[in-house]
Design a protein around this nucleic acid. Structure first.
Lengths: 207, 207
DNA sequence: CTCCATACTAAGCGGTTGCTTAGAGCTAAG
DNA sequence: CTTAGCTCTAAGCAACCGCTTAGTATGGAG
């Protein structure tokens, strides 16, 4: 699950591998780093260009505006995490929810740089772009809800408030991007495993 | 617990009641509203002054800088939530953790405007001011941990990783400020009750 | 070689930023 | 009434913002 980033390309490069041409990808990666560490509004187009090793005007060869840069990051980030959550497999609802939480929380740790921009800069998107991203967020919520609902139907989960529980589980995973620091006490995989355990305690029946 | 805001003064006024003189308080309240809805960096001093019904220069009569305005908000906000968490009472560790989570999560819903600034604009503080606030955050974490640890010692909680569980509980409560919207499906008190239930499920023994 | 499209930079434009200055209005002590 | 001190505003400064323009370098097609 965890990519080490020791094989010659960073985690960021991996996420944005499909972006071409090369200069456009470097610009996007620079924007992710800058937006994540200082916030969208505190980041200048000069910061981004400088991080990418180019002149300020080079931003506008590949992107119409600073906001379009953010939109690209937000869109790809949401699509990636939705694809991750949609590809969950496992035997039975317990194992599937375990895998889902582990993967989703782990992603927010491992790709915390991207995740921070994705989760905390939504308000800087234009109304049109925000609406497009909001639809993806609805699909993410629906996916997670279906994993919990399956366990209720199987009779292995006891969840009095399905919508509330889904909200709490997603909230728990998303907030990882806020507090996670690389080099901290836990690896992304360990965080995923711990969160999977905590969530399963939340939904298990009283017996 | 919930103040209605229907008795002639808003929730914001209540939090900042002790700030004097009157113009300084109005400026602070305007800053909280602006910072919460647009973010610190996207808010101009002209925005704040205009919301407070004064001229741009009036900000600097009462505060040295825009950052000092943020620091005041962050400091009072952290002190308020720490005081809230420290005043928790209840019979036994189960009831005390229930009350703690209910109050802390409920506060992040009811005072979500203040909470958003407190939790998501830490990075905009100067290093010195950030350090001062970080110490309060350490105390908040310690308080919550002690409520969980007490249940472990009493033998009514089963928590394999105390530090991890504390982190998750705090994370869950804090993230309420991100997603909560007034007029939504649940009142702050209902969110507090739901979260208290979810957290107790997380720490209860398997039986 | 010429021609043209693409990718880039140097320079800079109009507008906005956080903050300052100079001075006006008000209150209260002497 | 004078004076001092505090609160506020009108005006504006230097710096910086997102973005544009004009022009250069490069490389492939004919």
């Amino acid at each position: 699950m965890t990519t080490t980033g020791l094989d010659g390309f960073s985690l960021l490069d991996e996420t944005w591998r499909t972006v071409t041409p090369d200069a456009a990808r470097r610009m996007l990666i620079a924007a992710v780093q800058a937006f994540a560490s200082k916030g969208y509004h505190a980041t200048t187009t000069r910061d981004i260009a400088s991080l990418a090793g180019m002149s300020p005007a080079a931003v506008y060869i590949h992107y119409r505006s600073k906001e379009e840069l953010l939109f690209n990051i937000s869109l790809v980030g949401h699509e990636t995490s939705l694809a991750l959550l949609s590809s969950i497999q496992g035997d039975g609802a317990v194992q599937r929810l375990k895998n889902a939480v582990s993967a989703f929380a782990g992603w927010h740790a491992e790709f915390h740089t991207t995740a921070r921009v994705v989760q905390y800069e939504l308000g800087a998107l234009s109304p049109e772009h925000h609406a497009e991203v909001a639809e993806l967020r609805r699909q993410i919520e629906q996916r997670m809800r279906s994993y919990i609902a399956a366990g209720v139907e199987e009779g292995v989960f006891d969840v009095p408030d399905l919508k509330g529980a889904t909200l709490a589980v997603l909230s728990l995973c998303i907030d990882v991007a806020r507090w996670y620091q690389p080099g901290g006490r836990r690896t992304p995989d360990e965080i995923g495993a711990m969160y999977a355990d905590l969530v399963l305690r939340m939904v298990r029946p009283a017996t």
